[in-house]
């Protein structure tokens, strides 16, 4: 993450057009090669989320992640499913990350999945190689 973060500062200003939002499927990570790196893109409704192809745990390719929801911390023997379509699950050890914040679900690790700043203007999705601001909680 540190090497990625430092190379990121150099390219911070650059913005890449990912194309029209409605060409992206929901509930499926699309791998895109932009600016010399592969990133994962997940659409949800009118927005897209873009993240590094690198799990903070063992470095697994997150572009191969499954899209899911998560089980919220709950009372014993209760399953409380939430965040459907906003959770990417590492293709190796199934660590779950919120695509909006990069946070590991349930606080299983402190490391975050790197989320790129992305935005949608006039139906077109753009990504920058800088960390997305954390969503308001």
């Amino acid at each position: 993450m540190t090497t990625e973060a430092s190379s990121m500062q150099v390219r911070q200003a650059q913005e890449f057009n990912l194309g029209r939002v409605d060409t992206f499927p929901e509930r499926k990570v699309v791998a895109r090669d932009v600016g010399g790196r592969t990133i994962g893109v997940l659409r949800r409704g009118d927005t897209v989320h873009a993240f590094a192809n690198h799990c903070p745990h063992h470095g697994a390719p997150m572009c191969r992640a499954q899209v899911a929801g998560t089980m919220r911390p709950s009372a014993p023997n209760q399953y409380d499913y939430a965040l459907d379509g906003l959770v990417v699950k590492c293709p190796w050890h199934a660590y779950e990350f919120d695509v909006r914040s990069g946070e590991a679900m349930g606080g299983i690790i402190r490391g975050r999945l790197f989320i790129y700043h992305s935005e949608v203007r006039d139906g077109e999705a753009f990504v920058q190689f800088r960390r997305a601001a954390l969503p308001a909680r």
């Binding site: 697994a60 390719p61 992640a65 699950k89 293709p91 190796w92 050890h93 199934a94």
Partner: peptide, 9 residues
């Protein structure tokens, strides 16, 4: 199994 048994990649 709560996951796929194999690495998806």
């Amino acid at each position: 199994h709560p996951n796929t048994t194999y690495r998806l990649d």
